[in-house]
Design a protein around this nucleic acid. Structure first.
Lengths: 153, 153
DNA sequence: TAGGTTTTTATGGAAAACCTAACATCGATC
DNA sequence: GATCGATGTTAGGTTTTCCATAAAAACCTA
């Protein structure tokens, strides 16, 4: 199991690699706001665990395993952020909190949140209940009052 | 700012206090599955920060501040767990993941999740969309297909 | 090949949490 | 009041995680 920080490093390396084609120690250090020696130390650990390929003076590359982990983390982040924005959490807060949540959640949990996000996103038309939810947030009242809904939406 | 563990201690002390009227070192240790010396160490820290009152051989009491924090943490936990169960995450996983999430989330985020939980819980009748969501989880399809919904649910 | 840049090593440290072993205190019983 | 078992406390470590500074090594380019 990787630590949060280790996952952060992988995510950063993935982002840098996708942009620049490769990842330099210096760039990783700048991205994560740490000094190069800290990067070296972590990169060695990640190499030992088979997540990256690291050769002295040779830059850093993600292995299949490392790329897989990085993608999962990134996907989690995106999913969680999307969910938070659906329930009208401001973008910056959503992004920050997604960073917090992107580690350590059980895969079932993430899957269900992803399901919810997809449910809303692929819904034909903006779901009624979302509008109702937003109104509920402001008023604390259900727009449709006491009436029971019929089978069709 | 308190660490996660510190918050866990406060939460445990709150629970024990509510059940037994007071909290003994031994009981806290058992609850958190650590040794008494570990409890002493943390309790001293919490005392310094004004979250508990601790006197040698005199047990531990929450201060107003400490009780406030503990309640917030517990409320977050309950809210997050309730949300996860709404999206059909199994109870044990929901509880565990709530433990993970109960720290560090922005208050706005928690508030919105709480809103969602209340929106569903206070809804007159079981919300249509929840049933649709569950079906969506299984089939990946929206039960209501292409049709656009009218204004009323 | 000189120079600056980047990378690496070596070393250390802060902080959080935990432990074991030994000692102190408490409280109930004799 | 002395004793003893349970509980609480202290002292001294260990581990883990992450980061830093300083100095040496390698690299690259003019």
């Amino acid at each position: 199991m990787l630590s949060r920080k280790a996952e952060d490093y992988l995510e950063a390396i993935l982002n840098i690699t996708e942009t620049n084609g490769y990842a330099k120690i210096k760039h990783i250090a700048e991205t994560l706001d740490v000094t190069p020696p800290s990067v070296i130390e972590m990169v060695k650990k990640l190499d030992k665990k088979g997540c990256v390929t690291y050769k002295k003076y040779g830059g850093v590359t993600l292995t299949e395993k490392g790329r897989g982990i990085a993608r999962v983390v990134k996907d989690r982040h995106d999913t969680l952020k999307a969910f938070l924005e659906i329930i009208t959490v401001p973008e910056k807060i959503a992004d920050k909190d997604a960073c917090t949540m992107e580690h350590e959640l059980h895969s079932v949990t993430v899957k269900q949140i992803k399901n919810l996000v997809n449910f809303v996103k692929t819904s034909p038309g903006h779901p009624q209940w979302l509008g109702h939810f937003e109104e509920f947030c402001e008023t604390g009242e259900h727009p449709c009052g006491e009436e029971r809904r019929s089978k069709s939406e």
